[in-house]
Design a protein around this nucleic acid. Structure first.
Lengths: 229, 229
DNA sequence: TTGCATTTCAAACATTTGTATGAAACTATC
DNA sequence: GATAGTTTCATACAAATGTTTGAAATGCAA
């Protein structure tokens, strides 16, 4: 118990190295060298390399999920028990996008680690991801409350597409930057979140919209407003 | 030259094994065993394991790109030199989605291989993907012709989101299936393509939607279960 | 056939990797 | 301060893996 510091040194070093160089290029020996601890310490404290990775990922996942749910709850309380679909989507994609694209992304090893985890998808992480469906159900439930007229199918597709845009933006931001030759400003996180939320809401309200979806007057901070609309 | 058959046997076996078990779990020894060739044959014919993987991926990528461009060109010829934005998006996401979600997906090792490549993203493949921006420019150009009023920024974001939805659907189809408890029909490839195209076009046109709804209402079976991590 | 290039083969190589071991150092409790 | 439990350490282990090697086999032209 006394020497929690070895444990945390390993965790910190591992997260940093994985974030910087990816899972494929980092060995236990790299980690213990970075952490200034003995090689055997990893197996002593974590059991195995995979369990170390799993602990890293679970910790960060819980953290992200908590942020998401906090935002969702805040939106629901704000709306007297029911959040708007827009706020729900914002709570879903906001924390991740802010964490991984935010201005502190250079310093935030946590965010960079999660990006790596999203890109490389090593076995222990995949195993966890597959069990991560549960907390999405909370969002599905909130969405159902916000759009009682929509079918579950539409709802899940909307949820799915929202995550698609958020994650793909994180995963492929380099490529988008190169493709657009810098024209897509990936530092404007608020603008990106607005963009993803707007499209998500449109995707959700298109199919079975009883009333007109009322041209999105979402607060658009970026250069989103333009000629069309 | 005589023994191209060893080369192709290796390619076929490798693609099959990678498709089935992923890059992480398949060794050169597995491949040569499956191909009934000698271990050294891989290095003799391909130089290294990475070059073998690269060749597999490049071959399939070229194939997909060709399909995309064919579809794009067909749409342009059909429209007298200019394709509608809708057809452009369809040409962009159609081939991939059909290939990876299509009914022959059980038999098509090629498609399953590309899914793996998309999920696991091993170094030699990543290197290639990063140089794959060029042919997307052809789509950007077509989009520009179809929507001359739109800014390049909007255009690239639309392109990006379209790919996001397509790829994420392929990557996470298992999870979506589980999350939606089967309510999202992932065998209805045409419906999925319509969905992605519709949302993409909406994202590009920001509101003025050409009516193109295709909501599939599925009878509700099963109930959601709650559970926390 | 002879000769030359290409291809195949079995075996070995060289590393890298995660993990296990057993002793030593440390810590806390009595 | 002795003892039991915990943690650290150097080292060894075992297995896997991509790659190389040099000889044997094969194909092919003169």
């Amino acid at each position: 118990m006394a020497s929690d510091q070895t444990r945390s040194a390993i965790l910190a070093a591992a997260e940093r190295l994985y974030a910087d160089r990816g899972f494929g290029d980092v060995t236990l020996r790299d980690i213990v060298a970075e952490a200034n601890v003995n090689l055997a310490a990893v197996n002593y404290h974590f059991g195995s390399k995979d369990e170390l990775i799993a602990e890293l990922f679970v910790t960060r996942s819980i953290q992200t999920n908590r942020e998401r749910l906090n935002e969702l709850r805040a939106a629901e309380e704000n709306g007297g028990g029911r959040a708007s679909i827009e706020d729900i989507m914002r709570a879903l994609v906001g924390p991740t996008l802010r964490g991984c694209l935010g201005p502190d992304r250079e310093g935030s090893t946590a965010a960079r680690f999660m990006i790596r985890a999203s890109i490389e998808s090593v076995p222990p992480i995949r195993r966890i991801k597959n069990r991560e469906v549960d907390h999405l159900r909370k969002f599905a439930a909130a969405m159902r409350r916000a759009m009682p007229a929509s079918s579950d199918t539409e709802l899940y597709w909307g949820l799915h597409f929202a995550l698609a845009m958020a994650h793909h933006t994180i995963r492929e931001k380099e490529r988008l930057l190169r493709l657009s030759e810098g024209k897509c400003d990936l530092d404007d996180v608020r603008g990106i979140i607005d963009r993803v939320v707007t499209v998500s809401v449109m995707a959700l309200t298109m199919g079975d919209v009883p009333s007109k979806p009322a041209p999105r007057t979402v607060a658009m901070h970026g250069r989103l407003t333009r000629q069309d609309l």
